[in-house]
Design a protein around this nucleic acid. Sequence first.
DNA 1: GTGTACTTTGGAAGCGCTTGCAGTTGTGAG
DNA 2: CTCACAACTGCAAGCGCTTCCAAAGTACAC
Lengths: 343, 343
Amino acid sequence: MPGIKDVAERAGLSIATVSRALSGKGNVSTRSRERAQAAAAELGFVLSYHASSLASGRNHNVGVVVPSVHRWFFSSVVEGVSATLLDAGYDLTLYNVSEGQERRHSVLNDFLLRKRVDAVIAVSLELSEAEIQQLLAIHRPIVGIGGPLPGASTIRIDDSGIAQAAARHLIQLGHSKIAHMTGDAAYEKDFRLPGTRQGGFKKAMKDAGLAVRPEWQVSADFTIQGAYASARQLLGGSVERPTAVFAASDEMAIGTILAARDFGLRVPYDLSVIGIDGHELGEVFGLTTIDQDARGQGAVAVRRLLAGLDGVGDPGAADTEFPTRFVIRSSTAVPPVDAVPLR
Amino acid sequence: MPGIKDVAERAGLSIATVSRALSGKGNVSTRSRERAQAAAAELGFVLSYHASSLASGRNHNVGVVVPSVHRWFFSSVVEGVSATLLDAGYDLTLYNVSEGQERRHSVLNDFLLRKRVDAVIAVSLELSEAEIQQLLAIHRPIVGIGGPLPGASTIRIDDSGIAQAAARHLIQLGHSKIAHMTGDAAYEKDFRLPGTRQGGFKKAMKDAGLAVRPEWQVSADFTIQGAYASARQLLGGSVERPTAVFAASDEMAIGTILAARDFGLRVPYDLSVIGIDGHELGEVFGLTTIDQDARGQGAVAVRRLLAGLDGVGDPGAADTEFPTRFVIRSSTAVPPVDAVPLR
DNA sequence: GTGTACTTTGGAAGCGCTTGCAGTTGTGAG
DNA sequence: CTCACAACTGCAAGCGCTTCCAAAGTACAC
């Protein structure tokens, strides 16, 4: 396995010059640079990542912690993060911490802290202030997406605001019997958003003078299949049926639409459904939604991080609100004229 | 930032002993170990990853190259890989190379080769023999999942066999007008599976003496929405309608079911649909499928790799066939008695 | 020719660990 | 009590680069 020394010998240069030539830093004459590169190519030599990192103190590697790459939002964010990072010449170390708290804990300690990443992006993960301070103490900038990170920089959407907007959309169409499908308690643990969106929903309802009926507050695990099951309860159960459902995510909205179809309900004539996300499948279902461009959020998070790593970077606790886009399709309409329960 | 030296001083031990105590290798008295650990904890010290790697020559890091973590199969594999790797104390460096060839190329050269990973797992990526040899030349074991990697170790399912099984299932139910939805040409580039599955389908049809009608061979991009569009053409177009559709993936099967519903076709009474994958959503749609346990494949790939890194490991080109499971649900049934076209 | 200001180079000192080797201590057998 | 042997421990030599520093070369104006 060739080392930089071999390249230097072959190129008739010193190790120092070869290093500068290959890394592109410092002044090297064109002639030397070419020689060094040629020699490196001939030997099939590439700089050792670890040696470079150790000597320079830079890693070019950022850690990304997500609850599960299998979920729409997280994998979208990871794609955005990955593309931006790759472009910048950074590696992405993925920590998929689905297994719960103790795993998450060990990840933080054994991995992130080992100076192996320059920064960390935490997606929808609620780190304690102590954990954040620990990271910041060793100069590891950290930016959070979609989760509250006290003391750290975060990028997030206006969950309460868009929930209100979604609810208002239904209200303005004339709906008053509006159900809300929120996230599960299991999810809430690390992920406060369900509550925030629910809060926005309630506020909009209250502002419009509408009642929030407890039997129309259902929850699911943010998946299509989970929402489908919940929606079957809601729409097929013995309670009066709402004329509209606001689901806290597109996947849950889709689950709701599928359940509605099962009961012969036509969306939007018998039931309006609105979601939040901008899921690719939204189009197939004609889903009205609020697009939050998860990929874009990932990209922005990276740029923020990189700016902090290269330049002077902001002190840390900047909180950026990412813009969203209301997408009106065909799953929402005015309520049926005789909004009476089927049975 | 404390170094091992500080820990050594504080613990009243030598650097060497602290290193051994903290890494768990070599003989250290219980007393020394405890002291070292205590001192490290007090100082908030953790070993530097890069320094350890450089000095020991081991990375404890494997690179995972996938076309897109946003897709069901890949994110499933990544989850399996991630969990297994984390358990073994390895980091996972993710290369999401969705952007195409040139990106993939630079990833291989600039990242993977820089000695920063101990091994590579390539998911559904077709590396050239030269690329593989390059990797193997620097002692980077490589295992492929779902893609042909000449000269490397691979784990895969019997695509042709399960396609035949799926088709036979329909045939045995009495279907003869069977359509096949295969993967797109765009996908085929790095991912030979569509062709293999299509081959299996054709073989089963031929074996049963049934005609493979070109107008019933459609393709999509492996997504629900893509398949939905294709299926609308197939089912709503002017050609005679098949009584069953075998889709090369569950997502495409689901897209087909959605399209069928649009046309008022009842699955399975008017149309049988079968997929391949074991997608979570399969249950909601009652989809008959062949479960390939993608997570499991990821886990097996890691174990294979780790065995090769720790122990002596097999020479390389072992090809493991991963078992699949036929899951019969409610999307397949006998064909309608009067299988005449609707129009 | 001389001086000034760069640009280019190489020497060598680390970066923060791991580990071979040799020395020290402890233990049970003879 | 002595000796062989094992269990520890510390020293110091790297691992393969980056980069500070000083030396050397270049260019141009005076």
